[in-house]
Amino acid sequence: MSEVRIRAVIPSIAENCIDLEIQRGALIDSGVEVVVVANGRRLRESAAARNLPVVSSGKNGGFSASIALGAEQVGHWDWLLIVNDDVTIDLERFRQNLQRFVNEDQAAGIVYLNDEAPRPFPTRGAVFNSLSLLGAILTRIRTPSSAPDSRTYRSFSTVAISRSAWEAVGGLDPSMPFTFEDADFVRRATDLGVDSFAVTGSGADHLHSVSTGRHIASVLPVSTHSAIVYLDKWYTGLGLSNRALVAIALLIRIPLSPWTKAPKLPHLVGIARALRVVFGVRPKLPPFEDL
C-alpha cells in the first residue's frame, strides 16, 4: 500500500508567526505537509523575515478561498487537513490519532479531530439565534437539542477530509467567505452519502482566538452575507423572508452587543454595515494591506 499523503492548510491573519511556527512544526513531525496561507500583509512580512514558508494570493479572500488556495498547491494529497491558526497540537496524541484514523483505511470521508460538540445543521431559527446573539444566551440556560448523528456537523477547527469526499462535494462554497461554509459542506456531503467520524482526545485543542472580535466591524457584515447565502441555498423560495429574518436578528443584536467581548463602537458599526448587506450591499473582509 502506498504512503497516504496528508496536506494541512492553515489560513491565518496573525500579525506574527511565532505560534504558527510551533504549530507547523508539530504538524510536520506528525507526518503532514503544511501549507500556511497568509491573508494579511503583516504575517507575510513576518514569515519572510523568519523564513517561514507561506503562500498568499495578496488579498484576504476569507476562509473558503484560503482553503481552496492551499488545496490547489502543486503536489498530490490523499487527505486535506483543515486547521485553524489558534489550534495547539499535542504531538504524541495527535500523531497517534492521525495514524489510526487517517492513514489506515477509513470508510468515513470526513474525520473531525477536535473535541467540540456536534451541532445540528443550522435551521432558519438557528441562523436567527446566531446573528441576534440569542443563541449564546440560550446556550447558557439550557441544554442544546440533539439531532440524529447523520444530520450534525462539527466545527472545522481541525478536520480531515478525504480527497474523494472533497472532490465529490466540490470543496467549500466560495460564496460563503466566512461562517456557515463548514455546515454547508457537511450538509452537501451527507446528501451524497459521505460518512463522518469524530475522534475524541485527538490532541488538537482549539483556543478560540479573538481575531474576529477585533475586526468585527468588517467581519460581521461578511458573516451576515454568508448567512443569507446559506439560507437562500437551503431554504429556497424564501428570499424576502430570509432577509427579514436576518434584519430582525441584527436589530435584536444592538441592545445585546455591550455584553460581548468585541469592542463596543466597532460592534455597532458592524451591525449597521450588516443591515446594509440585507438590502444588497456587498461586504468586504478587512483588506490584506490593513492586516
Rank of each mutant, 00 (worst) to 15 (best):
D115W: 04
V74I: 13
Q96T: 11
P122A: 11
P118Y: 12
F128T: 11
D90H: 09
I89M: 05
N60F: 08
L80R: 00
A107N: 07
V87E: 00
R95A: 10
I89T: 08
G62K: 08
L80E: 01
G70N: 08
A71M: 03
L113K: 02
K59H: 15
G109V: 01
S56F: 09
A71T: 05
L69Y: 07
Q73H: 04
N97M: 05
F63R: 06
Y112H: 02
A68D: 13
S66Q: 04
F121S: 07
Q106I: 01
W79H: 02
G62R: 05
V74Y: 09
V127D: 07
D85A: 10
A126W: 11
L91G: 02
F128C: 12
S66M: 08
L113F: 08
A117S: 15
P120K: 15
Y112S: 04
N60L: 09
G109T: 02
A68S: 14
A108H: 00
K59Q: 14
I67F: 07
S130L: 14
L81A: 00
L80I: 04
N129D: 15
P120G: 15
I82L: 09
T88K: 12
F63E: 01
Y112L: 03
W77P: 04
W77T: 01
V74Q: 14
R93W: 05
F63I: 09
P122K: 09
R119H: 14
F121L: 12
N103S: 08
R93D: 04
A117W: 08
L81H: 01
L69G: 02
G75L: 10
K59W: 13
I89R: 06
S56H: 10
P122C: 12
R124L: 12
K59T: 13
L80C: 05
K59Y: 15
P122T: 11
G61R: 06
T88G: 08
F94P: 03
P120A: 15
A71L: 07
S64I: 08
A65K: 12
N84Q: 13
L113A: 04
R124T: 06
D115S: 07
G70P: 07
G62W: 09
F101P: 01
F63L: 10
S130K: 14
A107V: 06
R93Y: 00
F128S: 11
P118A: 14
R119S: 13
H76R: 13
E104N: 10
L91N: 09
A126Y: 09
S57C: 05
N97Y: 00
V111W: 01
D115M: 06
V127A: 12
T123W: 11
I82W: 01
D86V: 10
W77S: 02
A71S: 11
A65P: 04
F121E: 06
T123N: 12
V111T: 04
F94Y: 14
P118C: 10
R124W: 11
